[in-house]
Amino acid sequence: MIAVAKPLERLASELSKLPGIGPKSAMRLAYHLLYSPQEQSTALAEAILSMKERIKFCPVCFNFADGDSCPICQDERRDPSTICVVESPSDIVPLERMGRYKGLYHVLHGTIKPTQGVGPDELRISELMSRLQEGKVTEVIMATNPNVEGETTAMYLCRLITPLGIRVSRLARGLPFGADLEYADDVTIGQAFEGRQDL
């Protein structure tokens, strides 16, 4: 084994804990930082620390936030009558990239997983219900992932919310763009069929 100075080895071992970084790339990055100017390392170290210190959960929608509430909840142009429910903060990114949704969000931080003991109490469900009880919301859009646990969570929330007289909708499921009908499973085809629209 090649002898490497201790501080370099320590950095490489920390870097290799990041997703997608193997021991070789970790060592390459460590050498890169060693050869680059001092300011670059200082900026990186500070950015990491301040991110960990300053990013909190938005107390309204539980998205990540810098300070009080998240940028979306603070934006007065957003429509407060619609809430889109997602599993994790990273699910907001593609929905915002689409650019057509103008309502608010609610992040559950997971899905119901009966076999792992994850139930409603482990998710941000009671917080969602108190937002809805304020009476401003007319539609809740379920954007949990289209898999068994995501569907189970959506069905459960629908049961909770419908009695409040609020419309509950679900992102259309079914055949992904570019899919081949022949290889689609019966659940997917069934959902695509039920969700068919007039041409």
Partner: peptide, 9 residues
């Protein structure tokens, strides 16, 4: 795929 089962909570 037990579709009936999956569509009932």
């Amino acid at each position: 795929g037990f579709a009936t089962l999956k569509s009932d909570l």
